Computed example of a mutant assay.
Amino acid sequence: MKLSIFFLAVSSAYQVDKIPEPNDKFNVYALPMGHGEGTIIQCPAGADGSGGELSIFDLGALVKYYEWWDVVKFLGDYPIRYMFLTHADETHTSFFPKVFPTNPAETETYPNLSELQQIYHTCPFDNYSFGSCNSCPQDTSVMDWLEYNKQKTVMVNDGEACGTAACIANGGDLKKCTCSDDRGISLCPQNPEIKLDFIAASLNNCERDRFGQLNSDKDSLVAKLSWNDFSMMLMGDNKSPDQEKIR
């Protein structure tokens, strides 16, 4: 089995194709979301044609190259097993309610959620309400979408910080401090060696400042995608100096 990583690009007159058919490779696609984020993880196909399941690590944009219907077309009908919303930022989450609507239009075709296992997120649902100021109208579409799908959602480490040396230094136990409850998610049923480990999450403890604003970047879920000797970090919006704090 081999690994392929694709960074998709678009031009001013672009055409969106469906995700390539799964093969014997483990494929990772970085979508050209513009001011946003969208990573699609595709499992290898088996010799019998099975496999090819997808997982989605963030999906959102403000200034867009891809529109939500482009993502729908790209995903096609391959089953989606996991979704990950790294933090409460609309540039990472705004497409989820559009690509996977709670009230789908009868005239549209949407991605396949028949094998969906979990939707992982950091911080409580109400953090996923967006507006430019506290008194401004709020966009609650992501919050409402999470609430609708709450039977499938998991808040990483119950919204508490995990994954830093400071956690242990402050008296936390190893299990809590390393996000161990949710580590080692097997993304591909036929390839248990392909795993996603949660390395850190909610380093800001999902707290608002005295003005009621969130620093959601610090709360980003940081994950390690691994397959045999290969590994890559998926950082959300975690930035330096917080990156140096991660174990």
Rank of each mutant, 00 (worst) to 15 (best):
K150S: 13
I80T: 11
E244D: 15
C188N: 04
I40K: 08
A88F: 03
L3R: 11
L59S: 00
D219W: 01
P111N: 07
W145L: 04
T39W: 11
D237L: 09
K175N: 14
F26A: 02
G159T: 04
R81P: 01
V156W: 03
Q213V: 15
Y82M: 08
V63G: 12
D181Y: 09
Q190E: 15
K18E: 12
T109D: 13
N23V: 04
L214T: 07
Y29C: 10
W69S: 04
D181I: 14
Q118D: 13
C136L: 11
G49E: 02
G159I: 06
C133H: 09
S129Q: 15
D70P: 05
A166N: 09
S50Q: 08
S226Y: 07
H87Y: 09
V71E: 01
E193G: 11
D48F: 06
C188W: 06
S226I: 10
Q190P: 13
A166Q: 10
W145K: 04
A169C: 12
P111S: 08
Y78W: 06
P97N: 15
D219M: 02
N170I: 06
N170Q: 11
V63C: 09
F84Y: 14
Y78D: 08
P20Y: 05
D182W: 12
N23A: 04
N191E: 13
V156P: 03
T153Y: 07
S226F: 07
I246F: 13
F211H: 13
A30H: 12
C133A: 12
P97I: 02
C167P: 00
A200S: 15
E37V: 15
S114F: 09
L62M: 12
F7L: 10
P32G: 01
W69G: 01
V154Y: 07
D17C: 10
A61G: 02
P101T: 05
S240W: 15
P192E: 15
G184N: 11
Q118E: 15
F84P: 01
T102W: 08
P124D: 15
F7H: 07
F7G: 06
S11P: 02
M1D: 14
G36C: 02
R81G: 04
A47P: 09
G171N: 07
G172L: 03
G60V: 01
E160D: 03
G212L: 10
D139T: 04
A61C: 02
D126T: 11
L221K: 05
K176P: 06
A105S: 15
F57V: 02
F7T: 10
D173H: 06
G51H: 00
H121A: 12
N215L: 12
G172M: 06
S220I: 11
Y65S: 14
L196D: 01
P104A: 10
K73I: 09
G46V: 00
K176E: 08
G34N: 00
N103T: 01
T140V: 09
E106L: 05
L225W: 02
A9P: 07
C167F: 07
N103M: 00
T122W: 01
S216Y: 09
Q243A: 11
C123F: 00
N112C: 13
Y82W: 12
K176T: 11
Q118W: 14
E21Q: 11
M33C: 01
I80Q: 07
Y65W: 08
I80F: 08
D58P: 02
E67G: 08
C179Q: 05
C136D: 12
S141K: 14
Q151D: 13
L203T: 08
P104V: 13
